[in-house]
Design a protein around this nucleic acid. Structure first.
Lengths: 228, 228
DNA sequence: GCCGGGTCCGTGACGCAGTCACCGAAGCGG
DNA sequence: CCGCTTCGGTGACTGCGTCACGGACCCGGC
């Protein structure tokens, strides 16, 4: 599933990865000795529900999307792992000896450093800096994850859709399908289509096949702020 | 918020708490030196959304319920912390320096050992056994938490209610209000009332004010198994 | 060109779930 | 016995998810 990239060594990557660069020479050497640099192409499935988890992953560059999938096919994006971040589920599964409860998909080509479990545990034991890095990121991502869950369970679609639109299309018109938005907020494609049509009628967005453009950012932000 | 119990010393409690008993003499002494035994009365709010988190908590005996609350008043029980367990949110907040994103309510009088952050970090650094205990429990609880979330987001009420009934009333008739069941599965009281009435008509349960009794465990279990 | 298949979107009908407003019934303390 | 509080029941309405289907667009091959 995971293979070394052809053009960079572990040392190259780690040198460009701030959290590890701050580790201190001794532990950096330890990581260098056992870490595998990996290159993950876009669209690749990094893990599925039920996959065992055997190595710690630091994302150096790129973006991995982590989502749950229902039997019916409905999806819900939990979070994304970006440059300098780690995956809370991976860490948790490593520690608990569990299998993944969700799936991970590479969104844009990703470079990462994989650290085998034994080496990871040794680093945790040896380096306070490494512990701090792992656990602080961990706590922050879990908090964000719970906020997502709370939003999905308790808040209505209008606001959730507006927030997802701003997150995905806030920087200008962007390729984005109704299905992708539906997965983002855990609902069905038809529902998103209907709401988007309302937004368009209200002059908030402009729609084209496979593209969405925010027409009135201020008023859309107003909708996004209402969390009922 | 948290005060020492009057009748037991930290040593007494730790001696009766298997995970700590397995720590080895040296680290047990370290815990003894800084841990506070606490006694939490039923109904007490241990923490609220926004509370800072400054100490690690091991539950020696009793039960603490952890739940999210929406602005509208709707609730969702995330998990319970029982004998020998720790709270995944507490651990996560400690590591990440976050505030609690949920609230904790004591269900039955609870005894616990509180370990201040500094001592907790020292133990994590020093003892592999303690690390294993903390992180293994941690991973398992996070997995269970995500399963709860998935259930709430993707599955219909019938099955969720049946499962909640079995979990709460499976051991015989029990004091249990519709409101409590609604909070358990993250819905509204009226909805639970209507479904329970259906269950009663179907001969699955017997209802009385403030009490619910399972009349036909086998057929109720069938409903609980259907996760659509 | 134009034809065919795949992806994306629109829509109506329907059923389940959440909300609101209100009421009655059961327990409990004075 | 009365009044208060908690608990449960109900109808009307809205929002959302599901199903079924069809049309629109895109991109390849011919």
């Amino acid at each position: 599933m995971v293979s070394p990239g052809p053009d960079m060594t572990a040392a190259d990557w780690i040198e460009h990865f701030p959290p590890l660069a701050a580790l201190g020479q001794e532990h950096r050497d330890a990581v260098l000795a056992s870490a595998h640099p990996v290159r993950l192409p876009a669209e690749m499935r990094v893990f599925d529900p039920g996959s065992p988890c055997s190595q710690f992953l630091l994302v150096v560059d790129g973006c991995v999307r982590v989502q749950m999938i229902a039997d019916t096919g409905r999806e819900l994006v939990l979070y994304r792992v970006r440059r300098g971040e780690t995956c809370v589920l991976t860490t948790s599964c490593l520690f608990g000896g569990e299998v993944y409860p969700a799936e991970g998909i590479v969104e844009t080509e990703t470079r990462a450093v994989a650290i085998p479990l034994a080496r990871f545990l040794a680093l945790i034991a040896a380096s306070e800096g490494f512990r701090r890095f792992v656990f602080a990121g961990f706590g922050q991502r879990l908090a964000a994850l719970l906020a997502t869950v709370q939003d999905t369970v308790f808040h209505n679609l209008d606001g959730r859709l507006a927030r997802a639109l701003i997150a995905r299309a806030g920087g200008g018109p962007v390729a984005l399908t109704h299905q992708a938005l539906a997965a983002e907020i855990g609902t069905a494609r038809e529902v998103v289509s209907r709401h988007l049509k309302q937004f368009e009628k209200a002059g908030l967005v402009r729609l084209a096949r496979g593209r969405i453009e925010i027409a009135d950012p201020d008023r859309l932000a107003l909708r996004a702020a209402r969390t009922e």
